[in-house]
Structures are given as structure tokens and as C-alpha cells.
């Protein structure tokens, strides 16, 4: 697929975009096409290619959004975009005309500070008008710095304060279990976020209620806002901890779309929720951002955007 714009209504000019950022976006070709969800019939190779290119285009749009807004969390967005793209561009059983369907799959982004990545992914999946992305964090925008379910179709829970998503996901999965439904609930967590005790309350509850249609995915980028997780309040051994809490724990390269696809489409283990440790790199794959704590919420300038986009030119 070409790197250039395919169909991008409204991405080049709005009342709220600054001239500078629009110029950056235009010149660099960060317009985001509506890619839609690819069906299983397409075959694994095509699905993986669809997700891979989608993730690349989402990153291009996201960095332009952050530059334009002058705010955002680029490091933790780039680490989680491959997970989000895998979910929204294939795994989740949702569509724009079924966002109120009780039987839809749910995704809760517990690390709500990655809202920019979520919005760009929702747009790529055809669940959000791409034109809205230009309003990211502008006054009165529905695209808040953290997601709001009342304003953004496809958002299931308002998140931002950490440690909220997993309990909500447990409740959503429990509702499905009470209904005898096979619908799936996914929750995407940050690794630093697991320092919040509410997660461990919910890990106990998820296992206790044998929520096999619940999958938690941790974006294990090993950096939190101020330092390495291991230097702050270490999580290791996370796999052993979550197994001890009664979850079926898997580890995966969180930037390997094929591996993510395989893990996230596996048949659940009977009677156990699944915990996926997605090993990621904060700022991936941009060379000067990768694994660099400085890029937690640093905003790239125009030159840095151009340099990043150059690295995101081809799949």
C-alpha cells in the first residue's frame, strides 16, 4: 500500500488546526485512510499485512495530531499502536452500525493517556470520522486528552486515572457471563499502571469468576512517566504473579503483528481469563524515541516529526 493519502476527508484544513501543523501534515502525507476491519476470510497473510500497514499509518497520523495539539503521550502511544491496530482492524467483532449492539466485543483502553492512538485507530477502523482527528484536544473537541464514551463512538469507558480499566472489564465480562454470551472483553493496560492496587483486586475477581472471555493485555514497555518501571516499583515477575492470581498468561512480542494476531484470536482456556504480556518498546519504532523515558509526553517539533515520518515511510 502506498504511503500517500488514499481518502482523507477533512484532514487538511479545519478551523482549529494551526497553519504550521497543517503544513507539516500536508507535506508529510499523514492523512489517514479508512482501512476498515479485515475479515478472517482474507487469510492470515493479508490480515497481518492489513494490520501492519494500518499501524504504520496510524502512527503517522498520531504524531501529526500530537504535534498539532502541542500535547500528547507519543511514547506510550507508539508502544501500544500495534496492539490496538490488531484489535480494531481485525480481532474485535464490532462495526460502526453495531456500536450499541449488546453482543459486540468490548475494548477498554485503561491507559487512557494513549487517547490519540485510540482515536486514530478508531478512525482507521471506520468507527470515527477521520476529520474529527484534526480537533484533537482543541477547545470543545469531543476528542479529549483522555477518552470519553459519551462523546466518542466505540469508547466503552472513560479512562485517564490509572487502575480503572481492569475492574470495569471484569464487570463487562461478568455481564456477558451472566447472559451466557460468548462476546469478548479486552482491556489494554500500561505496565506502570499495574502499580495501582485496584488492578490486583480485579485480577483476583476475574479469576474468581472464571471469566474466560476476558483478556487483559499489558503494554510492557518498561518505562513509566519518570523512570524505568523496574527502578520505580518493579513488577517482576509479572508472568508468575498473574499466573499465581489464576490467569492464563501468555507473552508476545507486542510489535509482531502476526504473533499478536495469533495470541488474540486463540480459543480461550476454559474457566480462566487470559493475561497477555505484550513486550513493547516505548516510542517504537522511531529511532530517537525508542526506549527513551524523555518521550513519555514530550511533543515533537516539526523537524522531529519529519524525521519520525521518514522512518515510518515504508512498511
Amino acid at each position: 500500500m502506498s504511503a500517500g493519502p488514499i481518502a482523507a476527508p477533512g484532514t487538511t484544513s479545519t478551523a482549529t488546526s494551526t497553519a504550521t501543523s497543517t503544513a507539516v501534515a500536508d507535506a508529510a502525507g499523514t492523512s489517514l485512510p479508512v482501512l476498515g476491519r479485515i475479515d478472517v476470510e482474507a487469510g492470515r497473510e493479508a490480515i497481518v499485512a492489513h494490520i501492519r500497514d494500518g499501524a504504520r499509518l496510524i502512527r503517522r497520523r498520531d504524531i501529526a495530531m500530537i504535534h498539532s495539539a502541542g500535547l500528547g503521550h507519543v511514547g506510550g502511544e507508539f508502544s501500544v499502536i500495534d496492539v490496538l491496530a490488531t484489535l480494531y482492524l481485525h480481532v474485535l467483532d464490532i462495526s460502526a452500525d453495531r456500536l450499541d449492539d449488546p453482543e459486540r466485543d468490548r475494548l477498554i483502553l485503561s491507559k487512557g493517556h494513549a487517547a490519540g492512538a485510540l482515536y486514530a485507530t478508531l478512525a482507521a477502523a471506520g468507527l470515527l470520522d477521520p476529520a474529527a482527528l484534526d480537533t484533537f484536544m482543541q477547545p470543545l473537541s469531543k476528542l479529549n486528552g483522555h477518552p470519553d464514551r459519551k462523546k466518542v463512538p466505540g469508547v466503552e469507558a472513560n479512562t485517564g486515572p490509572l487502575g480503572h480499566g481492569l475492574p470495569i472489564a471484569v464487570g463487562t465480562a461478568l455481564a456477558g457471563k451472566l447472559d451466557g454470551s460468548r462476546r469478548r472483553t479486552f482491556v489494554v493496560l500500561g505496565d506502570g499502571e499495574l502499580q495501582e492496587g485496584s488492578n490486583w483486586e480485579a485480577l483476583m475477581a476475574g479469576a474468581h469468576h472464571r471469566l474466560e472471555h476476558l483478556t487483559a493485555i499489558v503494554d510492557r514497555n518498561r518505562l513509566q512517566q519518570g523512570a524505568r518501571v523496574a527502578e520505580t516499583n518493579d513488577l517482576e515477575s509479572l508472568a508468575e504473579k498473574t499466573r499465581a492470581f489464576g490467569w492464563h498468561t501468555l507473552e508476545v512480542d507486542g510489535h509482531d503483528h502476526g504473533a499478536l494476531l495469533d495470541v488474540l484470536t486463540r480459543t480461550p482456556v476454559a474457566g480462566k481469563p487470559t493475561f497477555v504480556i505484550a513486550h513493547t518498546v516505548k516510542g517504537h519504532p522511531v529511532s530517537f524515541m525508542s526506549d527513551n523515558v524523555a518521550w513519555h509526553h514530550k511533543v515533537p517539533d516539526a523537524d522531529q516529526v519529519a524525521a519520525a515520518l521518514a522512518e515510518l515511510e515504508t512498511p
Partner: peptide, 28 residues
Amino acid sequence: PDRLINVGIAEQDMVGVAAGLANGGKIP
């Protein structure tokens, strides 16, 4: 019995679980 959900001594989880149950169509 199935509709009495006891999360144990965990109030943050309790309210979060209730929000999720509401998301799933229940009235907790």
C-alpha cells in the same frame, strides 16, 4: 445467587465492576 456479585473487600474494584456490569446491560 448468580446476581449477587461479591468482589470481596475491594471497594475500588466493586464500583469499577459495577460500571462494567452497567456497560454490559445490567442495572447494578
